[in-house]
Design a binder for these strands. Structure first.
Lengths: 166, 166
DNA sequence: ATAAATTTTCAATAATTACTGAAAGTTTAA
DNA sequence: TTAAACTTTCAGTAATTATTGAAAATTTAT
C-alpha cells in the first residue's frame, strides 16, 4: 500500500465510521483530511481533495467549528481562509466526548427523569417508572464518568485504564 | 403527564436516540416497548402498539436477537411467538458495548494498523503514519477498556466510577 | 465608493435508508 | 397429508438525509 492508497483508505474509513455515529460523511472526511495534513488547508484544497462542492465544504466546516475541533488559521498575505484541526488525539477525544454528552446524553437524561416521575399505581405504570429510573441512574452515572474523565485533560484514557486494572 | 403520554415519550425518545447512534428507529422502539412491558409481547402486539408493518417488525426483531438483547419466549398453549428483552440495565449496557466493540471498533483498529504501517519517507506520509498510530493506540486502549469493563459482569459502571474517583 | 475575491445560504435534486404489503416459506395440529 | 396459523423475505415505494450549484452576502484591497 502506497501513500495515496493509505491516505484514501484512512479518509474513507473515518468517513464511514462517522456516518455510523451520526456524524455525516463529509464532516468526518474533512476532519480526517485536516488531521493528517502537514499544513493548513483552504476551502479550495478541501474541495479538490475530497471532490465535494463548495456549499458542502462550507457547511461542514462550520459544523466542525461548532464542535470546536476545527479552527480558522490566518495565513500571512493570503486572503483565503485556512483551516486546521486539533492534532492531539487525547484532546480530540475529550472534545468529542464532551460535545456528545452535551448534545445527546443530557437531553435524554431529562426525558428519563420526567418519565420516571409520573404518578400512577397501575402495574404497567410501575414497570415504566422502575425501568426508566434504572436507565436514568445508569445514564447519569455514565455521563458523570465521561465528564470527569474529560476534565482530567491529560492522557485520560490511559491513566484511567491503569488506575482501573492494576 | 399520564401513563400513556409518559410511555409514548419514552418510546419516542429512545427511538430517536437510537437513530442518532446508527440503530434504526423501529429497532430502538421495539426494544423500548419490550423493556417497559410487564409481559412478553407477540408480533401482533408490537405491530399494533407501534403502528408498524409486519415485515418491519419481523426484520427488526431479528436484528435485536442478533444483537443478543431480545429473545423468544414460549408461552404455554400459544402458537404465536412471544418476545422479551433483557430487563437489567447493567446487563443491557454490557451487551450493547460488547456488540459495538465487535462490529464497529475492531474493524477500524484493523484499518488504522494497516495504514500506520506503510513505508514511505515523505513528510506527508510521516504525518499520516504518526497520526494514525496515535489514533490506533487511543482506539485500542479505549476498546480494551470497554472489554474489561464489560467482563466485570456486575454493576460495572458504578463500580468503576467509585474506583476511579475516590 | 467600487469591484474583485471569497464565503454563505438555500431551493432543487440526488443518494441513502427505512418501511410496506403481499407472496413465499415454515411450523403445528388434527 | 392437509390446511390453518404464523413468520420471513423482498421488490417497490416512501421518507429522510446529504449534496450541489448558483445567487446573495460579506470581506478586503484600492
Amino acid at each position: 500500500m502506497d501513500y495515496k492508497e493509505a491516505k484514501d483508505k484512512f479518509i474513507n474509513t473515518w468517513g464511514s465510521l462517522g456516518s455510523l455515529w451520526g456524524i455525516n460523511k463529509a464532516m468526518a472526511q474533512i476532519q480526517a483530511l485536516l488531521f493528517i495534513s502537514t499544513k493548513p488547508l483552504s476551502m479550495e484544497d478541501i474541495m479538490a481533495e475530497l471532490k465535494i462542492s463548495r456549499g458542502n465544504t462550507s457547511m461542514n466546516l462550520r459544523q466542525l467549528m461548532d464542535w470546536g475541533i476545527v479552527t480558522k488559521e490566518l495565513v500571512a498575505g493570503e486572503r483565503k481562509e485556512y483551516f486546521i484541526t486539533e492534532k492531539d488525539v487525547q484532546e480530540l477525544a475529550r472534545v468529542i466526548a464532551k460535545e456528545r454528552s452535551r448534545r445527546e446524553i443530557k437531553p435524554v437524561i431529562k426525558v428519563l427523569k420526567d418519565v420516571s416521575s409520573i404518578e400512577d399505581n397501575s402495574p404497567e405504570a410501575k414497570e415504566l417508572i422502575k425501568q426508566t429510573k434504572a436507565l436514568h441512574e445508569l445514564t447519569e452515572t455514565a455521563d458523570e464518568m465521561i465528564n470527569k474523565l474529560v476534565n482530567h485533560k491529560q492522557n485520560w484514557i490511559t491513566k484511567s485504564l491503569v488506575k482501573l486494572f492494576t
